[in-house]
Design a binder for these strands. Structure first.
Length: 270
DNA sequence: ATTCTATGTCGAA
DNA sequence: TCGACCTAGAATA
């Protein structure tokens, strides 16, 4: 399930798998049929992620495929070709292996100016080396909106989603409803640096693990077992289990349209 | 069989 | 702020 790390991991996987090869391209479901047919037999050049957006480019073709997985989209690479189609497959890429895209929010062919427009509406992405965290800082520092809302705003910061926002706020002890302008610069610098590392780890492992070693299962005398979202976390969706560190009941509240989780005891500073 | 939920975003009211 | 939308698996009846 997709936050920015999923898309960067996917971009890497698609590049390693398909770049430099002629690909089969189809839309079993039909909703990307015309575009998929135009791509059939072309050489895939690269796959790149910006925030939660994926761009796939082909040799000798200015347009790029723009994919956004939305809440439940997936793009899964499996061995072999001519595999049976299971369920709704919007776009299938084949070349020795098969990559099936299902349930995307967006799958479209964009001209270069249209691609630029997508890039332009995104804030800095902690997973990209060309990102400037100052751009996010200025937005945050000038805003009265809660930091928990700003971290989810893709114009402010591209790539973090509901799990990373809850967990990064926990890791820095920040009360989620603190106004952006009350966040000290030093705190923001630490949050950005931490997000970079956490999300890089997410790209590497394909899951979101945010728990520091000193709070890990062995250190806390718990049985090591991953939660159903695929990693271990401090507060995300733990309202019935309590804070991983102090066991205080985790609070839940909708902020920026999504369920925010936090520990009122561990998270009290700005 | 049905309803619900999910790591997301957009546009209309 | 709300509903719509993309899909699949889990939860509920």
């Amino acid at each position: 399930m997709p936050e920015g790390h999923t898309l960067h991991r996917l971009a890497g996987e698609l590049s390693r798998t398909f770049a430099g090869r002629a690909v089969g391209s189809s839309s079993p479901q039909g909703r990307f049929a015309t575009e998929a047919a135009r791509l059939e037999g072309r050489v895939l050049e690269s796959a790149e992620a910006v925030g939660k957006h994926l761009f796939v480019s082909f040799a000798d073709m200015p347009e790029q495929v723009h994919v956004h997985l939305g809440l439940y989209g997936s793009f899964v690479v499996s061995p072999g070709t001519s595999r049976p189609v299971v369920g709704q497959v919007r776009w299938r890429l084949e070349s020795e292996v098969t990559a099936d895209l299902r349930g995307p929010n967006t799958c479209e062919l964009l001209t270069p100016p249209e691609v630029d427009l997508v890039h332009a509406r995104l804030g800095p992405d902690p997973l990209r080396d060309d990102s400037d965290p100052d751009r996010a800082w200025h937005r945050i520092h000038g805003s009265s909106a809660p930091i928990a809302a700003l971290l989810m705003d893709q114009k402010v910061l591209a790539g973090a989603g509901n799990v990373y926002r809850a967990e990064i706020l926990f890791r820095h002890g920040v009360a989620p409803m603190t106004a952006g302008r009350r966040i000290p610069r030093t705190r923001w610098d630490a949050i950005w640096a931490d997000l970079r590392e956490l999300m890089r780890e997410g790209v590497r492992t394909g899951r979101i693990d945010t728990v520091r070693p000193e709070h890990g299962p062995e250190a806390m005398g718990r049985a090591p077992r991953a939660d159903d979202h695929g990693g271990e976390v401090y507060v995300y969706r733990r309202e019935h289990q309590g804070c991983l560190v102090c066991d205080t009941p985790v609070r839940r509240r909708e902020v920026a349209g999504r369920n925010l989780f936090w520990c009122p005891s561990c998270q009290q500073r700005g």
